[in-house]
Amino acid sequence: MTAPTLTLIRNGSFSLLGLILLAYAAAVLATGRPDPVSPILPGAAGILTGIIVTLTARMATGKAAGIAWDELTRATWRRALTGGYWVAVWLYALFGLGLYLDLVTPAQSFAAMGTLTGAAPFLIFLANWVRGRV
């Protein structure tokens, strides 16, 4: 497996996971239910993504895996995690206000905040990757 293939699989998996988590949060807010579909879905998607990315990297040669996860990629990922942290902080503020104004329930907040916090690093990583930013 070549480095571009690994990169494609990683970015594809991250895209799919980010969209699943985002869609789950949107469904929670739209339906008013903390479990609009099976609540196992977000966690299962995350674990499956981890397995896919890890297994494909192990199936490739060390050099290909090193190129796919080179210094730029790791720096972009670290930056995405930092961005994800601040998204989580802002979500607390936003949903705190929503709870205070009775716009959302604690159960909805838990489900939406958890999945949005999970989606943030993956989507920030992909956005920066596509724009060629670190």
Binding site: A3, K63, I67, E71, L72, T73, A75, G132, R133, V134
Partner: peptide, 23 residues
Amino acid sequence: LAEAIGVSRKTINTIENNVFTPS
């Protein structure tokens, strides 16, 4: 150059464009 030092072409490109500072 990317192949020779084991990084992606994108890494070389971002260094050349001063977007990324290498270690």
